[in-house]
Amino acid sequence: MGVLTLGIPTQAAVLTSVFGRLTPYEESLMLPRLAEIEKDLILRRKRAEEEQWLGEIDGIDMTLTFVRTKQADAARLAHRSPVALGIPTTRPQRN
């Protein structure tokens, strides 16, 4: 199961582990949470710089890269238009 850096399983991680991937709608729901995570990581990075925690800075930078990639993917998928499949019809019976 996917887990955030805080060790808390997210709904998206649970859905991804069960179904393999999220729908565009589910991806779009993640955008506000991803922005919140990014903001928190930036604050944590500033503190790590102040405390000179070099290993922590590297880990936060890597996590920021993953979060920003996920944000870009979610934004791209949220703007995909649905595919019109048409209305199904029955075939005429052959006698």
Rank of each mutant, 00 (worst) to 15 (best):
R76P: 02
A72E: 15
V67L: 00
I8Q: 14
P9G: 06
R45E: 04
L64W: 06
L85G: 15
L43Y: 14
E38W: 05
P88N: 04
L64Q: 10
T89N: 08
V14R: 12
K46N: 15
V67N: 11
R47A: 12
T5H: 12
Q11R: 09
L15S: 00
Y25R: 07
P88F: 09
D58P: 00
A13E: 11
Q71R: 13
P82D: 08
R21W: 06
I42H: 09
L29S: 04
R21C: 01
L43E: 15
G86N: 11
D61H: 00
L64H: 04
T90L: 13
D73N: 07
L22S: 05
G86R: 01
T5W: 12
L31C: 09
L43V: 09
S81I: 08
L54F: 02
V67S: 07
L15C: 01
T10H: 02
E49L: 07
A78Q: 05
A75V: 04
L85Q: 13
P9T: 00
A84K: 08
I57P: 03
V67K: 05
N95V: 11
M30K: 05
G59N: 12
R80I: 13
E49V: 08
S28Y: 03
P88V: 11
V3K: 07
I8A: 04
I42Y: 11
T89V: 12
L15W: 02
P9L: 05
M62G: 11
T69R: 09
T89W: 10
P92Q: 14
R45N: 04
R91S: 14
L4I: 03
Q71P: 10
T63R: 12
